[in-house]
């Protein structure tokens, strides 16, 4: 049985004016670490809020642990853990008091499920008398995770848990998630960071409320349709302009210090491109074939008009 089913859900805001989620369907298996990947405003939080029974969808149906989110919302509220994107614990209560409060709310005690949170809790335990409002971002996030876990939820919803957290803490956080997965807790996590996508077992790429693709990260990368090249030159701005002007270019966008290019002609596109560049006195050219990342797949999957926008922003 699936831990989460999401079938043809559509949700609009402002009486239908803003389309937040457009006919999205997916399934999450029991014990799976599932990632929702998408930029800000893609509709990730809306999906979480629907699944945690905070929002009603306009159409479609969804279920958590087999319980319908509309009819059996009370059961769901008792059995899932939710960590909203914004820190939502009581800032004027201490770590210990927050944890105790949420344990009591769910009719349990810290002691009962201490095993589950121990790894995380020991890191913040030295500060347990400190008020939550005075914690650092990383500690707040650990506390929020503890509070979401304290009742041993069957499904854990983490809405952008690593946004605004430093890279070391981010790495630590994902290690914690891997350990939780071993406890057979289904985890649904959303993130705008593409590099975190590969840490999930399966991911769904979302853009403007629409699902672009849903598979394992490896499969998504494999399904990248063409060869991808990274190109570098001394004058990057000129290179970008030249590459865009080149008729053999299928796609072209700035990616870190490189340009990522795909060519229309699969066989010798790169060779033709090089000879094209040599006629335009470009210096310091470096070109090599690379494995696509999730971000490349994401850009490639985006509808045409949006790709242009994205490139425009990256220039």
């Amino acid at each position: 049985m699936s831990a989460v089913t999401f079938e043809h859900i559509t949700k609009t805001y402002d009486k239908g004016k803003v389309l937040a989620v457009n006919d999205v369907s997916f399934d999450v298996k029991k014990g799976e670490l599932f990632g929702l990947i998408g930029a800000d405003g893609a509709g990730k939080s809306t999906i979480f809020r629907i699944l945690t029974t905070l929002l009603l969808p306009d159409s479609g149906r969804a279920a958590v642990d087999g319980y319908d989110i509309v009819k059996n919302y009370k059961i769901i509220r008792g059995s899932v853990g939710y960590m909203p994107g914004r820190f939502s614990l009581y800032q004027d209560l201490t770590i210990e008091e927050n944890l105790n409060f949420f344990a009591t709310v769910f009719g349990t005690t810290i002691k009962e499920n201490y095993e589950l949170i121990r790894d995380i809790y020991v890191q913040i335990e030295p500060f347990k008398k400190r008020r939550a409002g005075q914690l650092s971002g990383g500690m707040k996030q650990k506390l929020a995770l503890c509070c979401a876990l304290i009742h041993k939820p069957s499904v854990l919803f983490l809405d952008e848990p690593t946004t605004g957290v430093d890279s070391v803490s981010r790495k630590e956080f994902w290690e914690m998630l891997q350990r939780l997965k071993e406890q057979n807790i289904t985890i649904l996590v959303s993130t705008p960071y593409m590099d975190e996508a590969v840490l999930c077992e399966r991911i769904a790429l979302i853009q403007e409320g629409q699902l672009l693709s849903i598979d394992t990260p490896a499969a998504i990368i494999r399904s990248f349709p063409s060869e991808l090249y990274a190109v570098k030159a001394d004058n990057m701005h000129k290179l970008l302009k030249d590459a865009r002007a080149f008729e053999g270019t299928a796609s072209c966008y700035a990616f870190g210090e490189f340009l990522h290019l795909t060519f229309k002609n699969e066989n010798n596109g790169s060779a033709v491109f090089l000879s094209y560049l040599s006629g335009r006195d470009t210096t310091g050219i470096e070109i090599r074939r690379i494995e696509p990342t999730i971000e490349d797949c994401f850009i490639q999957l985006m509808p045409e008009g949006q790709t242009e926008n994205k490139n425009g922003g990256a220039e």
Partner: peptide
């Protein structure tokens, strides 16, 4: 502060 969000997802 947003705490009501967290409270609403509890029993």
């Amino acid at each position: 502060v947003g705490t009501i969000e967290q409270i609403n997802v509890t029993p």
